[in-house]
Design a protein around this nucleic acid. Structure first.
Lengths: 385, 385
DNA sequence: ACTCTTTGTTCGATGATCGGCGGAAGATAT
DNA sequence: ATATCTTCCGCCGATCATCGAACAAAGAGT
């Protein structure tokens, strides 16, 4: 009936996405003959990528044998290198987290120090999960700055001294390494974890600075130089006095970033050094801090309103430290977006706080690695070697 | 050597893109055996999609037989429905224009009138080109408002009374019809005609209003509701007094659109009704009009600077009526973008006037139709029926 | 215990693809 | 002019993936 699509590797994609859990599902979805499906599934089981579990529910006939990704024998790592912390997650091929850790660590220590730390943590986590180092198939990493994705080299990152053009992948010898901007991997983690099915999503990180990860057609949009999503230096109106570290004035980050809010609070007599301090003040009931956060929301909303018109996403997710007080931040953001964006674009738009939280970056980095490993190209190399 | 990609229909894609002009090219590019390539090419010739031309240059051995799309027997139409004009282009399958016409026509006349006009012009052009109506394979159309692309129905278009939700494709019985926003098809036309090879491109139309077509990964980005690229109502700073027809104030369109410029010129004692009048004044050497255009460029640049940070395109193309005085418009745009965007994003960014001109919309609409017809899915249906 | 339904496997048939061989057609050397 | 080399292209038997029918397995319903 169907004109038989079903490219090789397609079968695995359907299993890993959870769209198909039995052989007959696969036959129906791919249009391939049942015998062909069985043969391919056998090859996948043979190569250790898929396993059979106990039989499922019968629907009146012989109960189907359930299929799922074989989660033993492989391991994948997601690394979240932040400005002041480093989180490493060990995941199995289905995306489940096997073990995880977080340590304070300054990215300014430089690549050798940081990557050596990652390496030690990897060994630790692998030991915890009871898997040998050789099980590690791929590693994804998010770093706080722009990256040339194809080569895994940071591209003039402002807050990562010593990392410029450093070939991060070479540090991990027998393992595929994918490096991306931290906001991108957060967007990926949030999308895959909380909003699969959504085609166009924006993830906005409101921390010390402000950045944005873009998911278009379900895939990350990185732009021509890999610098897409850098919305922290978009101009907001009415704040020409706010100077920014980039040399311009009225940048969103200089008006509504965590660092800017802390500075303004300090100026107004309420001492605060970081975005986290601002959050703490809000949670403690400080009305001045609360007002500033809500106002920051309006400024972020002003920029996002423009991007909603331009990009027309289905979902905007707000993450980062400031999202811990998301009720107040979101109020300002929503208010402005619904006022300044076109009705057609906002009609089905959801604006929500992060559902994945602290884990989004490490998770997303791991998923970057897993999805690369499971990509049709790569699978064709692995199965029947 | 290569792991043999080469899906069916891939061969035709390579020929139509001009990437391969001989059988050996195809063998090399697809990784298929020479004999297989020959067999597939034969099938394509059989079905009338490809033809052989005279032998090409020898490189020391037997000269290869050239292959190209067979341009007889098929026809495709690109229709550009503007606010006050209607242009129809008849193209062959290679994208070459066979015949073309433009007439003044008000879109406010409503769908029946406009589409009947299109129908008459199609017959005329087909006669000019000496092809029967049955040769028409697909038709693309750009209209001045938002469209639900999947169904070809305008979606609450502000300047197209009577068109809302009208099922345009049903008007053309035996022919695939694709309808999209006019700025989108202009972006497509400009990209395919002048900037193939570019992955990420923005096409900005500066006319009565201001809109933007987005090409990402070489394909049109339409967004969740098909309203992506509507940048005319993004806020610009310092113009809270400029009211916009959308109900808000300080919209880009209300500050820098052709209609707004004409109104301001009139207010300042220089009568002008439309963007075209403003252009005429500039060309006549009116310094006030010139200053306004340059200032409009700065405002457009302010918005584009934000979008450059967000989207990180390789090329920005400026089109629309106002681009006829692009030296002045571009000066303001470039000035602001290079001042307000991040160096990483602007380093390899080109900002150029439209190279395709008046024809971009009809051309892009036709290409939309042709590319749909040549898509692998569709080809598999056509060849060996 | 019997039949029905659904699932999964086995196996011969089919068709696409491969790769080698040889002929075609021109360039280059003799 | 003749011979040789290179490249291109069609032919043909071998190979491999896929298909579909038949059969076996496993449970539900009667």
């Amino acid at each position: 009936m169907t004109p038989a699509p079903g490219s090789p590797g397609d079968v695995l994609t359907l299993i890993s996405a959870g769209s198909a859990t039995t052989r007959s599902d696969l036959a129906r979805l791919t249009g391939l003959a049942r015998s062909t499906v069985s043969q391919r599934v056998d090859a996948l089981i043979e190569s250790g990528l898929v396993e059979e579990t106990e039989s499922g529910e019968s629907t009146g006939g012989r109960p189907p044998r359930q299929l799922r990704l074989h989660t033993d024998g492989h391991a994948f790592a997601g690394v979240d290198v932040g400005a002041t912390h480093c989180r490493v997650a060990l995941m199995d091929i289905s995306g489940e987290v096997l073990a995880e850790c977080e340590d304070p660590l300054l990215v300014t220590e430089g690549p050798e120090t940081v990557l050596a730390h990652v390496d030690r943590r990897l060994d630790l986590l692998l030991a915890q999960a009871g898997r040998p180092r050789s099980a590690l198939r791929a590693l994804g990493m998010g770093v706080p700055g722009p990256v040339e994705f194809a080569t895994g080299r940071p591209n003039n990152p402002p807050i990562m001294p010593g990392w410029n053009d450093y070939p991060i992948p070479e540090h991990f010898a027998d393992c595929v390494v994918l490096v991306d901007n931290d906001v991108n991997v957060m967007a990926l983690g949030e999308h895959r974890n909380a909003f699969p099915g959504t085609s166009h999503l924006l993830f906005v990180k409101v921390g010390t600075g402000i950045g944005c990860g873009i998911v278009a057609e379900g895939r990350l949009h990185r732009g021509a130089q890999g610098s897409a999503g850098d919305i922290g230096h978009i101009r907001v109106s009415g704040h020409d006095d706010a100077g920014c570290r980039c040399g311009n004035s009225a940048c969103l980050e200089a008006v509504a970033g965590g660092a800017a809010l802390a500075r303004r609070l300090t100026d107004l007599g309420v001492p605060a050094a970081t975005g986290a301090d601002v959050v703490a003040l809000v949670l403690a009931g400080d009305t001045l801090a609360l007002r500033l956060v809500r106002e920051a929301g309006r400024h972020i909303g002003e920029v996002l309103a423009g991007l909603v018109n331009f990009f027309n996403p289905e979902v905007i997710v707000i993450g980062g430290v400031l999202s811990r007080v998301h009720e107040h931040l979101l109020a300002g953001i929503r208010e402005t977006i619904y006022r300044r964006s076109l009705p057609l674009a906002t009609h089905h738009l959801s604006i929500v706080p992060s559902r994945t939280g602290e884990d989004a970056a490490a998770l997303g980095a791991g998923l970057l690695a897993i999805e690369h490993y499971l990509s049709p190209d790569n699978i064709n190399k692995i199965v029947t070697p």
